[in-house]
Amino acid sequence: MIPRTLHVIWVGDESKRPDNCIATWRRHNPDWELRVWGNEELGSYGWVNAEHMRAMAGRELNGVADLMRWEILYNEGGFVVDADSICRRPLEPWLFEGEAMACWENELKRPGLIAAGYVASKPQNPFFGQMILDLQKTPRVDDRMAWQSVGPLFLTECHRTHRYTGLTIWPSHFFIPRHFSGLTYDGGGLVFADQEWGSTLGKYDHLHEKKIA
């Protein structure tokens, strides 16, 4: 069973942590535990891929968060959401009835690519354990963009390579109704969150100051 725990990761300059965004998850989901993982946890948790995290810290902090994400999912279970996401409505129990879930990044702009920003799992899921081992065996992860080496593309390739059938993949509009390319969902389906694309669009310097309705 997927624990009702929301995990948010923020490493780097804590003065710019988007607490305004994080608070929306607590407000809409008061029955969920919310855990924020930061610099202290990065330095003390005992990560399997700590060396990769140190290397990636010199390139992209969002890549460090991705590396942490997979180990949090394996060790703790729950639902890891991006720090630059804004919850718009309470999460429904049926989203988490399986052993793991994620969503597509965008079916039109990036067909077949699984987003890394909204992933949930039961603890000790062998698939995420295998992802951690695959990374451990990889000589370097900071030699290319983080979305390729440790993020969405890595998740998608692992899903295909290991033929993992326990992952429920929801439509992108559930959590990413607006793609960074500008393509925006305008249908009548459920929208649980908005994605601000803080790293991709360079919003993190000011996102924590944004007024959120």
Rank of each mutant, 00 (worst) to 15 (best):
L95N: 02
M131H: 10
L113M: 14
C87S: 15
N75G: 00
L108S: 13
L95D: 02
L91C: 06
P93H: 11
M56K: 02
I72H: 10
I72A: 04
R59K: 14
C87H: 14
L73D: 05
L42C: 02
G129P: 07
L108N: 11
K122C: 05
E99N: 02
N49Q: 08
P111H: 13
L108I: 14
I86Y: 13
R89Q: 13
S121K: 13
I86G: 10
W94S: 05
V119S: 04
L67S: 06
A65E: 12
W70P: 00
E60T: 04
K109P: 00
A100D: 07
A115P: 00
A116M: 09
E41M: 08
G63L: 07
L61S: 07
L73E: 06
Y74L: 00
C103M: 11
W70C: 00
E105F: 09
G63Q: 08
V80I: 11
A57H: 04
V119A: 05
V48R: 15
F127N: 03
E41F: 05
P126L: 01
A50I: 08
R110T: 14
E41C: 00
E51A: 14
G98D: 12
F128S: 05
G117I: 12
G129T: 11
E76C: 12
K122R: 15
S85I: 02
Y74D: 05
G117S: 05
G112S: 09
F96D: 04
G58P: 03
F79L: 15
A83Q: 10
Q130A: 10
L113F: 12
E92H: 01
W94E: 13
A100T: 10
E97Q: 05
G129S: 06
M131W: 14
F79P: 02
G63D: 09
N125C: 13
M56E: 05
G63P: 06
N106W: 14
L108H: 12
W70M: 03
C87F: 08
G63W: 10
K122T: 12
P123R: 14
V81M: 10
P93L: 10
A100V: 09
Y45N: 02
E60D: 15
A65C: 13
G46P: 04
D66Y: 11
L73H: 06
A120Y: 12
V81R: 02
A115F: 03
M56H: 03
W70L: 08
Y74I: 04
G129F: 11
A57T: 06
G98V: 10
K109V: 15
V81W: 10
I72M: 07
W94L: 01
N106G: 01
L95M: 15
P126A: 00
V119Y: 09
G117T: 07
L73T: 08
D82K: 05
L95V: 01
W47Q: 05
K109Y: 04
A57E: 11
G117R: 12
M68A: 06
E92D: 10
D82N: 09
L91G: 04
V48D: 04
L113E: 10
E107A: 06
D84Q: 08
